[in-house]
Design a protein around this nucleic acid. Structure first.
Lengths: 322, 322
DNA sequence: GCTTGACATGTAATGCATTACATAAACTAC
DNA sequence: GTAGTTTATGTAATGCATTACATGTCAAGC
């Protein structure tokens, strides 16, 4: 392979000059520049990226620890990649699928200087373990409360859930079933808190319906429809963990001949594509802004800049299911 | 940062010995080994990945040029990542979204030795341009016919489409509408060929219905439902470009009160999750096997091995929509 | 005529790990 | 006791680009 030495020799200059030409830094005469570029072209030369990374101690490579599981997380990856590429960073993808060892492998690459930073969307190890890697490079997380050492683009869903519940109340629903996502997630905790606060405020009874957690898939929604059908005393509105659950529930009930929102109101969460498609009322989750913020946080730490973050707001998107 | 020299100095040995300990190669006495490992642990040392890559001329990094657009392509990425990680390769993701410049950037990284190989799932540049990069490292493609220099895991869909059509014929359908994906794709061409061969064989008239191409989304299926409804002379079966189109079509028609397959038979393609969910008859697309093959092809070229490829077969998956 | 600054280019150290080759001790075998 | 083998470790070149520092030319300004 041709290297910078070859170019320097053939152009009759030093490697420093070649480097100056390539990186457009410092003084180079027009004539020299032209000659160097000519030789570069003739020999089809490209600088070896590994040598540059070694010298600079930077790779312009950012890792994403994730799954490619739910639409919302895929959208995060998409937007994050887009903004990273715009800033000349590449993305290394770690689909860990809950394997702690794979996650460690990714974190070790930060230690081994193969990554400049990491966006950790899901995790299998404890936060303490992940936090311990922050001394090797910036790590930004999702789905976690703000923390001094481990920044996060997480957003408290307490208020968003209140907005949703208020909307249902305003529409006249009083027998509201709330369905929650991951049982151990912070989201679930905050949503439960919002619900009980809401129930208390309006003097609603909360324990008439079973407690549904870990509902995140279309299929979960379909099962929910079966449950709903089997009940004598039915909720008049269901606040679903996300749009996928809402979609499964909605299409199943419609298939059975029920009308939405006539027979039961359905409220989604996230505002993913399926909500648009099915005309589902939902809460917009500002995932693109979060993905951008995640990148900005890494970039700020990397360059010691302070690019302003997007302000995040949840917004009710009223469509036709409530 | 501590490097191998520091370890060597503190352990009172040469860097060669430290390297031997780390890589478990060559002879090292038990005592020396223990001492070196001790120092490594004490100083929290990890080898610099960039130095290794520079020396070896390999990065164990494979690029995927893709979108994260359709379920089938996401599944490819998922499976490919899985098998790559199992073989200690990392994935660099290039979401090019049809931008030729971004694609070139990825290909240039192969040239700059930052990638050991590339899986090109979609492309924006001509095949010639992509092929010209094969001299810098192995590239495997999707959606292309086999070619000497540019291997592909593409699979001729002519036969698969025949199987689908035969199935519809056997079920008694005679007025079959065929809906095609990307207008310029090879798939579309082969499917059209299969359809006209089929029509000729059974003496069916082919030009009663309009020619639908570029139909790939749920929304396309929904629009198809509107079209179907508006027709006096309707097809009795629709062979959709993929499961997403079929899903959109099917749910729309059911919503309008039609029964599937009572009023119209629907046949999907790909056998993605939505087909399972909606009980859609479809053709299984062996995407996981293709993803594995893509990796095996790269690996074989990289190591000069000849890992056997999966044999690929399409299979009709009969469910309840035909 | 001398100083100063802009322009141009080169020298050589640096980042870090790998490995071919060399050296040498210890052991085996006849 | 000598030749051959196994074990153990070191030396130094190698992969490649960057950059601080040094050197030198030329023109402008007083």
């Amino acid at each position: 392979m041709t290297n910078i030495q070859d170019i320097a020799r053939l152009a009759g200059v030093s490697t420093a000059t070649v480097s100056r030409v390539i990186n457009k830094r410092g003084y180079v005469s027009a004539l020299t520049k032209q000659k160097v570029l000519e030789i570069i072209k003739k020999l089809d030369y490209v600088p070896n990226a590994n040598a540059i990374s070694l010298k600079k101690g930077k790779t312009r490579q950012i890792g994403i620890i994730t799954t490619l599981f739910s639409p919302i997380i895929i959208q995060f990856v998409r937007t994050f990649s887009l903004i990273a590429e715009k800033n000349r960073f590449n993305i290394t993808l770690f689909i860990t699928n809950g394997d702690p060892a794979k996650e460690i492998l990714a974190l070790e690459m930060l230690r081994g200087k193969q990554l400049d930073g990491i966006a950790c969307l899901i995790r299998s190890n404890t936060w303490e373990v992940i936090e311990s890697y922050t001394r090797y490079g910036p790590i930004v997380t999702w789905q976690r409360l703000q923390n001094e050492h481990l920044p996060s683009v997480f957003m408290d869903q307490f208020h968003a859930y209140q907005v949703g519940l208020e909307h249902l109340y305003a529409k006249g629903y009083r027998k509201i079933l709330s369905v929650y996502p991951m049982s151990q997630g912070l989201n679930t905790k905050e949503r439960i808190r919002a619900y009980s606060e809401f129930a208390q405020r309006y003097h609603l009874i909360t324990d008439i319906f079973p407690h549904f957690e870990d509902k995140m898939l279309v299929q979960d929604g379909e099962e929910l429809a079966t449950w709903w059908l089997s009940q004598k005393y039915r909720p008049d509105a269901i606040f679903c963990a996300n749009d996928e659950v809402a979609a499964g529930l909605m299409t199943s009930l419609k298939r059975l001949g029920f009308s939405i929102p006539g027979d039961v109101g359905i409220l989604g969460f996230d505002n993913t594509e399926v909500a648009h498609l099915l005309d589902l009322t939902t809460i917009n989750y500002p995932i693109d802004q979060q993905a951008e913020n995640a990148f900005f946080i890494l970039q700020n730490k990397l360059n010691n800049t302070s690019h302003l973050l997007n302000t995040l707001t949840y917004k009710l998107v009223e469509r036709k299911s409530t």
